[in-house]
Design a binder for these strands. Sequence first.
DNA 1: AGTAGATATGGGAGCGCTTCCAGATACACT
DNA 2: AGTGTATCTGGAAGCGCTCCCATATCTACT
Lengths: 345, 345
Amino acid sequence: MTQLTLKEIARLAGVSRTTASRVLNDQPHVRSELRERVLRVVAETRYHPNPVARSLALQESRMIGLVVPRSVHSFFSDPYFPRLTQGIAEACNQYDYTLSLFLVQTPQDEAKVLPKITSRGFLDGVVVQVGQMEDHLIATLADSGLPMVVAGRPEITEGISFIDVDNVEGARNAVLHLLKLGRRRVATITGGLNTAVGLDRKVGYERAHAEMGLPCDPALIVEGDFTENSAYQAMGRLLQHHPDAVFAASDIMAVGAIHAIQHHGLNVPRDIAVVGYDDLPPALMVTPTLTTIRQPVRRFGIQTVTTLLELLKNGPQPPRQVIMGTEIVVRESCGAILAEGANIS
Amino acid sequence: MTQLTLKEIARLAGVSRTTASRVLNDQPHVRSELRERVLRVVAETRYHPNPVARSLALQESRMIGLVVPRSVHSFFSDPYFPRLTQGIAEACNQYDYTLSLFLVQTPQDEAKVLPKITSRGFLDGVVVQVGQMEDHLIATLADSGLPMVVAGRPEITEGISFIDVDNVEGARNAVLHLLKLGRRRVATITGGLNTAVGLDRKVGYERAHAEMGLPCDPALIVEGDFTENSAYQAMGRLLQHHPDAVFAASDIMAVGAIHAIQHHGLNVPRDIAVVGYDDLPPALMVTPTLTTIRQPVRRFGIQTVTTLLELLKNGPQPPRQVIMGTEIVVRESCGAILAEGANIS
DNA sequence: AGTAGATATGGGAGCGCTTCCAGATACACT
DNA sequence: AGTGTATCTGGAAGCGCTCCCATATCTACT
């Protein structure tokens, strides 16, 4: 079977390449009779235009890249990355873009992959998942001129479009939930305070107290590092200060906290209520099941793409910075469900 | 800044396009003086050839696709997919290929995405993750002529290259492990027996018995469907037949089985030893920690790519079918670690 | 000095598509 | 019939690269 090209289609339909091209691109100035003839030939031969040639001529590839830097690799152990990818891929399908994936694990990868990403004409735009200490990568991409949207909050936001989840608001709601259930000594195990996420969630904790007109006891704030073990340790220390609730800045840490509480012979949620953050599978595996903050990860991915596409459509313009909300998922560990009021003691 | 092209580079270096191209592609027939001059200009201008134009001229894109059909979406909830992707991406980086991702979730997606995938010149080859009932997709891709490797075992293997993990051997080792620890009433909770994986693991169970010259008691074989709940139910039924060990065809099911055993007041591993399959996070979250079969998922992804690249290099040829081994991860639930010999009762 | 044979060089065509633009055709008027 | 306008049509150039092939240059011979 001879290689199918537009020229061949045109020949078969008895028209010129131009006319055939017009038909394929739904352009005017083609007699409906010819249009039909071309469409029939296309259908019969199952012809599809060569996207590479098309990209070259149009100077746009209809491809966008997703760049995942090495520091994000913790994400491979939680469902964040797959869900994000799913959202992004979904949006790409919808808008007829192709997604290509760049996992940058080593500096060598970076040296190899970055030039490719920024090569003219290869990608129309790029989504970069923010990790830690990736200013360099983001800066390089930013001034390559390639349209870019950052998923997460980059360290420098100047002139950069990004989508972030409102960690302050999420944490605030978590803590507010506990306070409204009548808990009055609400502790927190923070994430690493060298990360934006860790800091934001701590701010949310403080803000909730301020809103309710309650003081924050510094003894009830302990730093963890997002691992279960760090939270287990942290909870051990917290217990000396008799909290009646804990907000852990991640589900994994919440699990660590619950284990610590239980090993001290106390009951969750009766003695100490717990709220986590992320709504990952561990939240359901633990006993009692975990009340937590769910992030709209899939929608987040979609948002990332739609924002990028807007950037593409409208050319260079003021960067867009979108902050998305969260939702609280109430389960057993906060004590809201099992016993109404009885817990307020 | 004017658009950089090969022509421009050639002009700056005072040579022809051809010569410049030769230098960039490490081809002979260029005086070393000229070569250097060109390289210097390239370095100064940070020029990188336009990959799209290159693809068009070379008739190869150096892109491969990863196609994930809708039925694989359970994979989004376990780390299989991220790890596979990681392996694939790693290999792509190494061999200078770009990976593009196609999530085919709906029939509409399929209609939209398939023509794109099979368009001439767009992808050099494709890796298809096998799900359930995807013969159609695989068949379509197969006879589009696009070089293809299937990750997993497709329903029809005729003329198709695929990489699979040896589920029979993995299950066999799991059960052998239990038998060698002296267990004599080893039950199994199988996966859905309408899936290749479910069937293979059951065959492994039987084969282990055959090898040891032991009979299989049909009462000790119960079908689950890979969910925790199905295993919990199954285990309940199994208990009436007094097994002293259980091989569950997935970790999730092993967790269900352990819960059931414990709720009946029995001890794992003393009364009943348990071995799972997959080595997913739940294996570590449960008490006692789970002995299980680990799949080489990342290496699996890499293998998938190297096989595809061989196919690309050597042209159409007999399909390659690779079966990869597994390894057993011994933890507490099988009783091998805590008590040597004491369990043999 | 002359020539075969190797080695360098660059013009030009081609990859498959889009699109400008000039020319052809149709239609409605005076 | 003749002009003007709207509507079609297709040749040709161009997107940025590779590579064939004809030509130019350089060695090492006789």
